[in-house]
């Protein structure tokens, strides 16, 4: 009986994971959030040259590299480096997360808004 319950949960999770991760992202605009606040927004479709910038908080530093159509965390001084290992974000609905620094990079819809906050 337990095996069946566990298998059902496994199948639902697999389906949800496949749906969430394989679903193409809706936009070309990369948003960088720190602590639940939008700190920077880059339109990846308008970038010509690779653009490197630093997001610094009192928790640490993330160096972010934006290229035409894609963005990644190039280096960070967080302990686990999960954000760096995540690699390029180009068309996935799954965001890049640096939990120790509370930083999230995600793709978002409306590409016409090209703002730079902070």
């Amino acid at each position: 009986m337990w095996i069946i319950i566990i298998l059902i949960i496994l199948l639902i999770s697999l389906a949800a994971a496949a749906f969430l991760w394989l679903r193409p992202a809706t936009g070309e605009r990369a948003e960088i959030w720190v602590d639940g606040e939008l700190v920077r927004s880059v339109d990846l479709s308008k970038i010509q040259e690779p653009e490197r910038f630093t997001v610094e908080t009192d928790r640490g530093v993330n160096v972010i590299l934006a290229e035409p159509g894609r963005i990644r965390v190039e280096s960070a001084d967080c302990p686990d480096k999960v954000c760096v290992d995540a690699g390029w974000l180009s068309d996935s609905a799954a965001p890049i997360v640096c939990l120790p620094h509370r930083l999230v990079i995600r793709l978002s819809g409306d590409a016409s808004l090209d703002t730079e906050v902070g």
Partner: peptide, 19 residues
């Protein structure tokens, strides 16, 4: 803590790995 609901997309993957 981080105020990042985006993390929820990791839940199904984490559940699979947890099983």
């Amino acid at each position: 803590v981080a105020g990042t609901p985006e993390l929820l997309v990791y839940l199904p993957v984490l559940l699979v790995s947890g099983i």
